[in-house]
Design a protein around this nucleic acid. Structure first.
Lengths: 118, 118
DNA sequence: AATTATTATCGTAATATTGCGATATAACAA
DNA sequence: TTGTTATATCGCAATATTACGATAATAATT
């Protein structure tokens, strides 16, 4: 069907999946990294750097913005995008929370026979 | 087009995006969390817990397995899935590497006028 | 005012994803 | 052997995503 049954899952699960979806495209990863490297970026710079069409970059920027990862400020006739520091930290924490749910030591302590992957 | 131009991006960017894509579905997040909570899970247990059809769970498990997040071991007529500890750590590191590229302090030091998000 | 530069949005084609019924396969049980 | 249980795979329909040309909107420049 192509439609996700969000009602079956918790708010946290849906939210994290949504965040992951925004990161699930190399162009958006690349845009994020360019923005970090240059402190801020404008659309046409990214078009030159990444080699995607202007409309495509604009679309990716829109998604990154609506996810809270970037935010843009008008500067003359350009729009300067930078990392949304507060959101960035919150998003990082959500991923850390997931990754923190499992660790090797946990496995060794509670289930020494967990040998299926070793 | 629906096709991602992977040739425009670095190996790392493509790889991280690919990993994010696997996490970009609440069912797969939920499966991961069930597997962690129960140490290991079999298909039909997840079907009961999550309320998705058996074929659907099987498909998600396949993706999680091929991404290296889970691995399965045959136990009689069931297949027991657990976290692939080594991969898990490697994947965590890739996300940490991304999130480590930006921090508030960096911003404050190098670009005090980065006020577009504050 | 007309031109130029920059970005957003619309529309569309190509492709990918999600979900599940139906079916196939394999291990065990009676 | 026949039946049961557990899982994987196939095929399909519905929906989502990706990419971009065309166009619109806005601000600066001439």
């Amino acid at each position: 069907m192509g439609i996700t049954k969000t009602d079956l899952f918790t708010e946290d699960q849906n939210q994290l999946a949504q965040l992951a979806k925004v990161l699930a495209h190399p162009a958006r990863i690349a845009i994020i990294q360019e923005v970090i490297k240059s402190q801020s970026c404008v659309n046409h710079f990214l078009v030159q750097e990444l080699g995607l069409a202007q409309a495509t970059i604009s679309q990716h920027l829109k998604e990154l913005k609506s996810a809270g990862i970037l935010c843009g400020s008008v500067e003359g006739k350009t729009i300067s995008y930078c990392i949304n520091a507060q959101s960035w930290e919150a998003i990082r924490k959500q991923f850390e929370q997931l990754f923190g749910q499992f660790s090797c030591s946990t496995t060794n302590n509670n289930n020494p026979s967990n040998a299926c992957c070793s």
